[in-house]
Amino acid sequence: MPSATDIRPTRLEYIRTKRRIVIAKKGLKLLKLKRQALILEFFNTSKTAAALRENLQKELIKGYESIRMAEILAGSMRLENESMKLPMMGKLNVKSKSIMGVHIPRLEGGQNKVYEEYLLELPTSINEAISSFNKIHKIVLEVAEKETALRKLLYEIERTKRKSNAIENVFIPRLMSAVKFITFRLDEIERDTFIMLKTVKRKMGERESEELKEVEAEINV
């Protein structure tokens, strides 16, 4: 924290500081707007994430139920057989999108193109189980995407809040006190000058009256 001795009490510094206060206030307003937008996005994303999580719970129950049914109807040997035939998952691509300057991951891929056609040739129970877990896989990716976004948004909200608090409670007050200090110092200088001028004027008056007295005395002599 710069002390009062670091501030140059000049008119130029006064103008500069005043300008910095205006910019800081503008910045504070923008940060508050950004925080509001981030909070809004956070709530929207958290609503979507909560809905997805709820859906995931339901789908997981359905998925495990379908796996059980597949085991009951087709047997674990057929399940093993079909699981051996399942194509490997496609490559998962992680891209990113920006929300108010926050980079949020976007997951793409991870599925297999021939999947649906392949499902047609399977026993119904195994088909239902695979479709169900395929859906679960999609939802898990979406949940992962949304929850990472939430964490990043939360971090950014916290950061913006700290920034705006610092500007509002530390930076602007410090600039205001600098302005106050500069005004005070400038007033002091002005008063000093005024007093000095008064003294000089008084002394000059005294000197003039002494000189006048000396002249009068010489005349009288």
Binding site: M77, N81, M84, K85, M88
Partner: peptide
Amino acid sequence: ELILSSKVIGRTITETEPFLVSSRNFPAG
């Protein structure tokens, strides 16, 4: 179907007397 898929995907498959056995050592056919 099982053998061809395992060759395409690269999974191992072996044989015991009555079964084809998957890489988890469980009967698959």
